[in-house]
Nucleic acid binder design. Structure first.
Lengths: 212, 212
DNA sequence: ACCTTAGGTTACTTGCGAGTATACAAATCA
DNA sequence: TGATTTGTATACTCGCAAGTAACCTAAGGT
């Protein structure tokens, strides 16, 4: 727990205390997201989460102002990872198709992890006013990033022409769905799932060589 | 309301009364599913639904034994349409690829309608014991049907070789996602969305002719 | 005329879980 | 040493919505 506090004196102060607070906050999120994914948000009481951490509910309220905030922080962690990947895909060089592929793989991997799973299981009616707005904004940002990547690829000829919006949603849907069916103990690694799913989307269902 | 009662005598009886009861049941489902889709299941109270129908809550309990049953009937209506389409796709003749394509289009269309939308917004933690089991069974049946169709296509050469399970989930994910983004007033008809999405999945993202 | 059943109402119970008031202990600060 | 801040617990409030009890009315069967 007591991480990187230069000297390991018993007098932990300022920076260290802040770090400890942060790590406890994180612990709440990690525990909460597992419950949310396993039982659903509404079916999870903060007493459940508290008990799993061997504390009581008011302790949780010491780190978060309400249940909404906890859920939002979970989805934020998932979404920001993906958003950062879109940004990387845009600033990198090379043909759009390659950048898209890299992005898709990263996206798929996030969907095999707790916070990513939470994103797809959360619908915005579970969040209050303000969180909902931020949640939607993040999702829109990601979708626009994905769509503009697709458009770029259609323009530079590395992707087949078509309705970029539909293509973007098709990709997003297939990738998001991973969160619903992937099980770590199911014979495939997360990486394999990501690779196969991306390959399916890229190459399509029908054979390449001699179209029927 | 008084439908097809042969003569339109004021003495409605037996069969007609049963039909009327059924139509009221259906009205509850139609109203409820709209609320569920708009606000989420938990955020919808049966008082809301009752008020929208200009009746009171106990009236609803006259047609359904609890809230679970209402939700389950909604998803059942959506899922059974899809399941029937899988069965049709299996019993029809012709190359598997064509049957798969027809099935996908039908699936996509269901996802633009209320009961289909409800299916993807419902996670099984919202249902009680028994309904949950039936819900899962239906979904599994559909997925197995889809997957075996894919396997058949890979065998007869009308579909590209690959991991049939991943392919099935990729298809299901892309199609299910339609329920999350399609808006009837968004410039595309349901049919167009279905066609474009299916085409994207079938042909893949990269161009067919001169692969870069 | 009378009983029964269907469909509906008003008014209630009830339980769960989010969020809070209050108190307490330990450590840091001055 | 005393004051203040931080983290935690115990024990509560409180509102909402699911589900129920009891009652009413009208129509159909006999």
């Amino acid at each position: 727990m007591r991480q990187a506090g230069s000297t390991s004196s018993p007098w932990v102060s300022r920076r260290d205390r802040a770090a400890e607070r942060q790590s406890k906050r994180d612990a709440v999120l990690c525990t909460a997201v597992r419950f949310f994914n396993a039982q659903g948000f509404h079916a999870t009481s903060l007493d459940d989460v508290a008990k799993a951490l061997s504390v009581t509910k008011p302790t949780i309220y010491h780190y978060f102002s309400n249940k909404d905030e906890i859920l939002f922080e979970c989805v934020r962690l998932g979404l920001e990872t993906i958003r950062d990947a879109t940004e990387a895909a845009h600033s990198d060089g090379g043909p759009a198709r390659d950048r898209l592929e890299t992005f898709m793989r990263e996206y798929a991997l996030v969907m095999t992890r707790d916070f990513g799973i939470c994103v797809t299981r959360t619908s915005d009616d579970q969040l209050g006013e303000e969180s909902r707005a931020k949640f939607r904004a993040l999702k829109r940002e990601i979708n626009e990033g994905l769509q503009s990547l697709v458009e770029e690829g259609m323009r530079d000829g590395s992707l087949a022409h078509g309705n970029a919006q539909v293509v973007a949603f098709t990709v997003a849907g297939a990738l998001n769905w991973i969160a619903r069916w992937y099980r770590p103990d199911g014979g495939m690694s997360a990486q394999q799932v990501a690779d196969h799913t991306v390959a399916t989307l890229i190459h399509g269902l029908i054979p390449r060589a001699p179209a029927s």
